[in-house]
Design a binder for these strands. Structure first.
Length: 287
DNA sequence: AACTCTACCTGGGAGC
DNA sequence: TGCTCCCAGGTAGAGT
C-alpha cells in the first residue's frame, strides 16, 4: 500500500543508481497495467538518460534527456527492484524475473550496469510518458493539492479547502485535491495523533485543531519516511526489503485493542467511510 | 456541484 | 485437504 512515505522511500532507493543513468534493453512483458503502457514505450525509453528522480504525491517522475518524463504510479502492489548485472549479460535475453514482473530494463551509469524490474501483482499501477513541459498541466497532476511536506500545506490551506464542507474529515483528507499523497493508513494515524474524530464534518473543525492536524500530518509522514515506509502485505523497497513503520501504527489495523493514549480507557474501533476502513479511538478522538 | 458507489486486480486469510 | 467468501485500497468514472 504505497502512500507518500513508501513512494519517497522507493525514490530515494532508486536515485543513487538511476540519476544520470542511460537506459537500455528495456522490455515490456504485457500490453497494460491498469492502463495500456504508452505507445512504443520500449523504444521511447531506449537510450534515454534519466536526468532526475522526482516525486509528486504518490507519483514517481523521471525527466529524461529525450524531453519526456517517465511517470510511474505504484498503485497498490507496484514495486521496483534493483539488481547488479554481470558484464556481458543481456537483459533482453534473460528470463522474466517473476510472473508479475511486467517491465524491466538495464541502467548504465559510470560503466556499472544495474537491472531495474517493475512487478505489480494486482496491476493497479500505471506508467506514462509525458512531454516534460506538459507534466504540470496533465490530468494526473493539474488537480492535485499541495504536498503535505511542502510550504503550500498549512492549517490555513486546510481551513480554506474545508470551509463549509459537510463531508467527514477522513474522506476529505483522502481527497488528493485537498492535499496530495495521503492514503488510508496515514490519514487514520494523523487524525489519531491530532485527537480528531474521523467522523467530524471537515468544515466544523476549529482553526486550532486544524493547526494541530497539519502538524501531525507532517510528523507522521516524516516519521514514516525515516523508518523506510510501512510494509503490510505488499510494500518493498528497491532491495526487496521491508519498511518498519508498521510496527508504530497507533490505530491502523488495531481494532479491539486498547487505545495507546495515556490515561485513555478507549478501545480502537473500525468503521467504514467512503468504502474504506477507518480505525480510531472513539474516546479520545473528539468531534 | 457535492458527494457516494463501484470497477479494476490478485493473494491471503477465515470459515466450513 | 480444498472450497468459497471477503478483504486490502488508489484512482477514475458512473450514478445520485
Amino acid at each position: 500500500m504505497p502512500e507518500l512515505p513508501e513512494v519517497e522511500t522507493v525514490r530515494r532507493g532508486l536515485e543513487p543508481v538511476l540519476e544520470g543513468a542511460r537506459l537500455t534493453m528495456a522490455r515490456q512483458n504485457r500490453p497494460d497495467l491498469r492502463f495500456p503502457f504508452p505507445e512504443r514505450f520500449v523504444e521511447r525509453l531506449d537510450g534515454a538518460t534519466v536526468l532526475r528522480l522526482d516525486r509528486r504525491a504518490k507519483y514517481l517522475l523521471f525527466p529524461l534527456s529525450t524531453g519526456e518524463t517517465w511517470v510511474t504510479h505504484l498503485g497498490m502492489t507496484g514495486r521496483f527492484t534493483l539488481e547488479g548485472v554481470a558484464p556481458g549479460r543481456f537483459e533482453t535475453d534473460a528470463p522474466v524475473a517473476g510472473k508479475h514482473e511486467h517491465m524491466s530494463l538495464t541502467a548504465e551509469r559510470a560503466g556499472v550496469l544495474t537491472r531495474l524490474g517493475y512487478a505489480d501483482a494486482r496491476r493497479f499501477g500505471f506508467m506514462g510518458l509525458i512531454p516534460t513541459e506538459a507534466v504540470e498541466g496533465h490530468a494526473w497532476f493539474s488537480g492535485l493539492g499541495p504536498e503535505p511536506l511542502g510550504n503550500g500545506f498549512s492549517a490555513a490551506h486546510l481551513a480554506e479547502v474545508f470551509d463549509g464542507k459537510a463531508q467527514n474529515i477522513k474522506v476529505s483528507l483522502l481527497d488528493q485535491r485537498n492535499v496530495a499523497g495521503l492514503g488510508n493508513i496515514y490519514v487514520c494515524e494523523a487524525l489519531y495523533r491530532a485527537r480528531i474524530s474521523p467522523l467530524t464534518p471537515a468544515g466544523k473543525v476549529s482553526r486550532p485543531r486544524l493547526e494541530r492536524l497539519a502538524t501531525e500530518v507532517r510528523n507522521v509522514l516524516a516519521d514514516a519516511i525515516t523508518a523506510g515506509g510501512s510494509t503490510l502485505k505488499d510494500f518493498a523497497n528497491v532491495e526487496g526489503g521491508q519498511g518498519y513503520f508498521q510496527h508504530r501504527f497507533d490505530v491502523y489495523g488495531r481494532e479491539g485493542e486498547p487505545c495507546r493514549t495515556e490515561g485513555c480507557s478507549g478501545v480502537v474501533a473500525r468503521v467504514v467511510q467512503g468504502g474504506r476502513s477507518t480505525f480510531f479511538c472513539p474516546v479520545c478522538q473528539k468531534r
